[in-house]
Amino acid sequence: MKVLVPVKRVVDANVKVRVKPDNSGIDLSNVKMAVNPFCEIAIEEAVRLKEAGTATEVVAISVGASACQEQLRTCLALGADRAILVETDVDVQPLGIAKALAALQAKEEAELVIFGKQSIDGDNSQTGQMFAQLTGMSQGTFASEVAIDGGKVQVTREIDGGLQTIKISLPAVVTTDLRLNEPRYASLPNIMKAKKKSLDTVTADELGVDLTPSVEVVAVNPPAERAAGITVDSVEALVDKLKNEAKVIS
């Protein structure tokens, strides 16, 4: 069974991000970048399937600028067998990424595609679902447990207030939640091996997909600074403030 794992290059989770002065986006100059943590979980799950003998090949894919090769190398060091970069200078959005991945899937014909449930930069949580729709594959999102059983995948999903277990048919799309696994660290021998693994580059044109964004970002603003709290002297004053100032009760 071939497994595809799309991964995204995002700002490192430990970086304190700053909004650009003109509010056009996040300032990414000289900022440490990393594999999106949910995508790392996806890679780990795929590599475990391979180690268990369920998967035969793990292919990591990224859509973005040539710098994404860094993150694909990381995936190779974590155990992916090869990597593909769909190289573009477009500031890609979920729909464009999903289209590019669907075009690749048409060639690769993987039986399982494991996504991170969302990226920590855009927080859209859309790409996996859009990809499933475009390819007509069944989907199990927000997985905290995945079990392959013949031609089926049993996915335990983290939903509001509990867990839901579903069984879907292969080929399938799974998106990973935080608790699915704890990703390993790259070992030195695997970093060395990664250098010899193939990392191919294709363009959107070669795939015949249009990556033009369909959503325009108007402005990016940092969250409002939290003001200091106050002490109220009675329950009445509290209720009054909750009603009339905070307007959280009526």
Partner: peptide
């Protein structure tokens, strides 16, 4: 070099 960044990152994670 990419490899040096990978080494740095991986060691940082163990530490």
């Amino acid at each position: 070099e990419d490899e040096h960044e990978l080494i740095r990152d991986a060691v940082r994670k163990v530490c």
